[in-house]
Design a protein around this nucleic acid. Structure first.
Length: 208
DNA sequence: CATACGATTGACT
DNA sequence: GTCAATCGTATGA
């Protein structure tokens, strides 16, 4: 990779990557790259934490069937499902499985690798903040990457907002599997995955 | 219509 | 460790 990462460094993952079960996709997303090209410039981060949600899952937005909010989750795989959390933050998921299946993977944290000044601006309003906290947590991730409700339904298999391959040879990171964070149902399902030991992973230290 | 509650974060004790 | 912010969505009268 060149010193300054370019959009072409991150070849989009094909749709078939996402056309599988949410748990399998969540695992395989570790070490991939979330990329967003905007007028402000190019931002990218290595995905280091994600959680799986599916239809048979009491903790999922799809557990009670299709609604106006979750309709994107029933659409084609590889598209982005964005929802508002606590009336304050945006959270983004990648839709998985076939069309008609309500499943997705919540992106919870990335390690920033491109466009760091842009992310700093979005997150800390220009002030300096800890690099580690730039995109650590689902709400922070969306803030740093410039993802909002406007991106609900966008296709992440092509620019300007996509999930790409890590430049160079991909070596699968060492994964840690834990229960999901912040839910009150199905609390023991081990459907959260993160890069073991990464400081860019959210949640309590014991879950890293 | 009323109301309870978050797939969170940041400020504060 | 505790707690408020803030509002879309779901649920029930």
């Amino acid at each position: 990779m060149s010193a300054v990462p370019r959009a072409t460094d991150f070849a989009p993952l094909p749709r078939r990557f996402f056309a599988r079960g949410a748990v399998a996709v969540a695992r395989d997303l570790m070490g991939r790259v979330l990329v967003h090209q905007t007028r402000a410039g190019l931002c990218a981060g290595i995905i280091v934490e994600a959680e799986a949600y599916d239809e048979s899952d009491p903790a999922s937005h799809c557990y009670n069937g299709p609604t106006a909010r979750n309709r994107t989750m029933y659409g084609p795989p590889g598209h982005l499902y964005v929802y508002r959390s606590y009336g304050v933050h945006w959270c983004c998921n990648v839709v998985t499985g076939g069309a008609g299946v309500g499943a997705a993977v919540l992106l919870r944290a990335v390690e920033p690798i491109a466009g760091l000044p842009i992310m700093q601006r979005r997150r800390f309003d220009g002030a300096d903040g800890p690099l580690r906290d730039l995109a650590r947590g689902p709400g922070r991730l969306c803030a740093a990457m410039g993802i909002t409700r406007d991106h609900d339904g966008v296709d992440t298999t092509e620019p300007p907002l996509w999930i790409g391959r890590t430049p160079g040879r991909f070596s699968r990171p060492t994964l840690r599997t834990t229960p999901r964070i912040g839910i009150s149902k199905a609390v023991s399902r081990p459907w959260r995955f993160c890069v073991a030991g990464s400081p860019f992973v959210s949640g309590p230290k014991r879950l890293r």
